[in-house]
Each structure stands twice: as C-alpha cells, then as structure tokens.
Design a protein around this nucleic acid. Structure first.
Lengths: 340, 340
DNA sequence: CACCCGCATGTGAACGTGCACATGCTCGAG
DNA sequence: CTCGAGCATGTGCACGTTCACATGCGGGTG
C-alpha cells in the first residue's frame, strides 16, 4: 500500500506532482516549459496539483541537466557609489525579467590580483555572462589571463569603439559641460579627471580636450583623480595655491563636491570666483551648495541595455539596442560667467 | 578502445578526473571534501589531474544531491544609497568567505505587493537564509503571508529587542547627536525622522525623544521624512516659514543635506543661525558645506555580523557576535552654540 | 594463528529535471 | 479501407555529485 504523499523532508518534485495528477513526470515538465502540444485540461490539472503541493521547480536540477546556470555575473568596484549601485539595480531587474539570476562580486582594491580573484569567483559559479563595472583594461587582461571564454559587456564604454555595445555618450556629455563653460566666457578651465584606466574617465577627458580644441581654447593637462570627494578636496586645495583658472570641470559629482569644499574653505565663492561642473547627476547634486551644474546620465537605462545586449548574445536573438544613450546637461547654480 | 579525454563540450567531471588519475570518482569527491582518511600521495595525484584538466566543481550537481543551495538572499530597498550598498558589499564578502553565494533582490517601491514579489523571487531560488534591508514590519508580514520558513536577519534593529541580533545602537547614536546639540546650548530642536516603518528610523526618533526627555528639554513632534535630500529640502523650506528652532537633528545625512540647502537658500547660515546634525556619515558628509556633524555607523561591520549570525544559525555553530556596534559622533562644522 | 578493527578505497544508487525516442490515438486524403 | 501525419503523452536515461554501504588489507590482541 503506497503512502499518499511521501514527503520525507525533501520538497515535492515533478514526479510527486505527476503521481498526484495521474500523469507522467514528463508531462509535468512540459507544463513547466510551456510545451505547445498539451491538452488544456491536462495542463490545468497539473497546475492545480502544483499549487496544492506548493511545488517549486528545482533550479539546481535544471541547471544540471541543461548545463546552463541562467546566471549573470557582475564584477564591480565602488559598488557603494550611486552610479554603479543604480546600474546594478537595473541589471538585476532586467535579468529577473528574463529569468536570469545576478551574482555580484565587488572588489575593494582594483589591483590585478583582486580583480583576478573576483573574476575567478564568478567563473566558478559558472556564470553565463559578465557585466564589468570596473577599470576595463585590467579586467579584460584578467579575463584572458584566466583563459575563460565568457561573453561580457562592459559598462564604461565611450560609444565609439562599437556601436552595438550599449553606452552613454561620455565624450558628448563632457563636450556639453565644457562648451557650457566656454559659452559662459571662461577661458582658463581645468579638468579633474577620473582614474585613467577607467574608460569612462578617459572618454570624459577626451571630450573635454576635444571641445577645448574645437573652440581653440588653450588648456593644461588634466589632473588625475580617484573619483572620491576626498580627492577633490585635496586637489582643490593644491590648485587654489596657484589659482590661474576660473572654472573646473570635474569628471564626477563627488570630486566636484570636494572641490567646492576647498573653494569655500579658501574664502572664495562658487560660482562667483570659480565655476564648477560635475558629471553623473547623483540625487544629492541638486542639493549641494550651490546646487551643482552637472551632466545627467541614465545609469538604470544603461544597466537594462547591458543585460539586453548580453542576453541577446546568449540566446542568439538579434533584437538590438543600438545607439548610445544621450546624456543631458543640467544647469543649476554652480556655474556663471567669470568675474572680470 | 576508449578515447582518452572525451570532452564532448561538457566540462570535465569528477569521473573524468578519476579516470585520468586512476582512482574512483568517489576518491576524487573525497579530495574535494577534504575527507580525513586519504593517502597523501593519492590526494596529490588527484589535485594535479584537477589542475591539468582545469576541473571546476559543478555547483548545481552538488546542490541537487545535498539539497542545499549555499545561497543567501538579500532583500533590499534603496540599494543605490550608501548605507545599504556598503552593507551589501560586506555581506557579499563575508558570504564568499564562507563559500556562500549572495542573491540580492532590490525593490523600488516598498508596498506590500512589491515586497512580496521580491521575497517570492528569492524563495524560488531556494535561498537558505535571508537578510532584510527594508521596512522590517512589512517584510515580516510578507514572510508569514508566504508561509515560508526561512531563517532571516534584519539589518535595522535597535539593539534592544534581542541582543543576539547584530545591530548598531541606533538609540544610543541618536542620543549622542541630541546631547551634543543640547550641550551646545540649544533648546529649540527639531527632529527630521525617517519613514516610520523603518525600525532604524523609529529607533533614532526614540533616541532623540529619550534624550530630550532626560535633559528636560521640551520638544515638538518629529517630522516624518523619506530619507531623501529632496524631502529634506522641502521640509526645510516649510520649517523656515516659522523658524522657531535653532537646531535640527536629521535622521540621515541626505536629508540633512537638503535641509542645509533650504537654510542657505533662505539666506541663513549654518551653523550660525541653525545647527544641523546628520546620521550615517556617508563619505560625502565631510565635504558638505559646512562639513556635516553626524553620527558614524559602521555599515560594513554590520553586514559582516549579519552574515556571521545567519550562518551560525544555519550551521548550528554557536560562535556568537554579541553586543551592539557602537556608533560614533563625528563633530564637524555644521553645529555651534545658538546665537543669542 | 584466528580474529576484529580501522584505514584507504571502490561500488551503486540516489537527487530532480530535460531530452531523445517510443507509443497510441485521431483525422483526413487517396 | 488503409495509411501516414501529427498530436498528446509515456519511458528510460543522462547530467555531476554525495551518501550508504561494501571491500580489501595491514596489524595488534588473545
């Protein structure tokens, strides 16, 4: 005499469902995978039994037999900052919609070993694809070093190399910011750039230099920062010892905040004495003092597109998200014509 | 005649390793699980073959047979903000160390349905434990509603309910901030609180009220905010229409930033006319203008302890992280004695 | 020398799912 | 009436790992 529902601690499987519904386990599997040739009544019955038994498909078993993990890895540094964090959130959402899982691996330092280790960790979880939010150059090196052959998408692209890769037009955004300063009448403009192995930082610097060149404004070498407000502050203090400029374009909002701090501390006024433009438009930027003129980029959209792009490559669909995402100049109170 | 290494596209399995090493698959498994009774020479040989074949254990197969996913879920709102984001990072790190995976599910809105859905998503991935960074009350409701029986740890606890749960002493921190203002001579102090269903927010409000009561300073009802700088700004504008206060204690740094913005905009001075204290000590706080006096809490440590606590429950070990994490008052320039 | 114990290793069966193939049934064309 | 096509479903195995149990072997004890 067979006991009804065995339930020996394990969760119900498709076989349990099949037994109760009076069908074969394969039929249950077909219901799960939405196989076309299934009688409606059968399908309904199976679904009811699933509900009744509180059946949940076993991801591990499925991954085992299909040899696909349906998991995407995100390799990130600075995941505690607004940009990366909001991209990650969007990535998660988009992935969930496509029934993919997201595994993030954050790394504190960006040295080669740390990146390699984080990457190895993701690879060991057999992720099917990779999104990189980190100094691209080094990570790409690490990928080839580990000789893993996983499709990846990087989040810091210029929008130049390959227009099939989703990207914000960083160069264009930087030119927007720079042009804004020039149009206000500034001629002595500094650029506080990000770390040079971030493609993002390089693109913004390039945009700055391009625009300065196009408008025939002479410029000095950009200062290389590390994205932090702390750095912006100390860089600002140094710069103010000479003070041969009337405006600064900072590669992100945090460094701009540090700059403004240094300027205020020196008894100067923003934008009266020095105009400052940032990049990113973090939610706080509107409430800096003065509210920051900056370039807004849509991190969430970027995250969504990255996933779309990655999944497209994974599944072979060719529904492309072409073209770059246009950033937008948000003029607030930290910029004004130079006093003179 | 058996072909040497089959390699039909699939990654090598323990059986492949076993064949090459001339042992049984079980012996390979024992190497993986560090079984005590293994001859050293055997172990070495197996390890060499693993290296040679680039063998990677298959997580899915393991999860299938052990019925354990070794995965922890994090349910979070506002994952793009500094506090949650840095906790998540620490959680990931700690989990990785314990060979656990972290799945985060961020949710934009905090209504019941969204939380329920995000929770269901995590449950479907068969997470073994849960860390909650969200309005606790509602999530707990959702958990019982879904009748899932998963151990969980919440990140916003007061440190009062149960001292086995890791937590920052929010009440103590709030009292520190409040006492600082009182000691400076302020008597008309407002509190801008967080959303009331965040235990964190409630605890800080409680700390504020407790301290005010203990020092016999009369107080008015706190204002309930939503954590955002935007809210702080508009709340500030409203408050300044009456202006019957000389200091404000904000429940987080972002709202404090908005407040300062409103105060500056009204032509007033911080801390000259109004002193402001924040909470969290986000990295930007030191570079606000004026640099913000705030209460620092160690989000990373909190994340680590949460995982320790969760794993302890999962594995039955009893190595406890007792006691609360003490927050620290960081006095900068946004507070001063009242002008009078 | 017979016995048993413990170490090092092997054997076979699960785990829950999907795939390839097989089966029976219905329906319409010739 | 026969036959093949296609639909709805079933059967058995494979995926990579661990678990329970079996096996052989060396050595200490009586």
């Amino acid at each position: 005499m067979p006991t009804e529902a065995a339930g020996k601690g394990r969760a119900p499987s498709i076989r349990d469902v099949a037994r109760v519904a009076g069908v074969s386990h394969q039929t249950v599997s077909r219901v799960l995978n939405e196989h076309p040739s299934l009688r409606d009544s059968t399908k309904q019955r199976v679904l009811e039994v699933m509900e009744e038994l509180q059946y949940r498909p076993n991801r591990a078993a499925r991954a085992l037999v299909t040899a696909r993990s349906r998991t995407i890895g995100v390799l990130t540094t600075r995941s505690d900052q607004y940009g990366p964090a909001s991209s990650i959130r969007a990535i998660e959402e988009a992935a969930r919609e496509a029934e993919y899982l997201v595994l993030t691996s954050s790394v504190t330092s960006t040295d080669r070993d740390a990146l390699r280790e984080a990457l190895a960790h993701l690879v060991e979880q057999s992720v099917e694809g990779l999104v990189i939010i980190a100094p691209q150059q080094r990570v790409v090196e690490a990928i080839s070093e580990l000789s893993v052959d996983i499709p990846y998408v990087t989040m810091q692209s210029t929008g130049l190399l390959d227009d099939t890769v989703p990207s914000v037009d960083q160069i264009g955004g930087a030119r927007l910011a720079t042009r804004h300063l020039i149009e206000l009448g500034h001629r002595d403009i500094y650029h506080l750039a990000g770390p040079q192995d971030w493609i993002e930082a390089e693109a913004r610097m390039r945009g700055f230099l391009d625009e300065m060149g196009a408008q025939e404004v002479p410029t000095t070498a950009p200062i290389l920062g590390d994205w932090s407000a702390e750095f912006g502050y100390y860089a600002g203090r140094e710069m103010l010892r000479i003070r041969d400029f009337t405006a600064i374009f900072s590669s992100n909002d945090q460094m701009a905040l540090g700059l403004i701090h240094a300027i205020h501390e020196a008894g100067l006024n923003v934008p009266g004495d020095v105009s400052v433009v940032g990049f990113d438009d973090i939610p706080e930027a509107a409430h800096f003092w003065p509210p920051l003129t900056t370039v807004r980029q849509d991190f969430a959209e970027l995250g969504r597109r990255c996933i779309a792009r990655l999944l497209e490559g994974l599944t072979g669909d060719s529904e492309r998200y072409r073209g770059t995402i246009a950033p937008e100049l948000v003029v607030r109170k930290s910029t004004a014509p130079p006093r003179r």
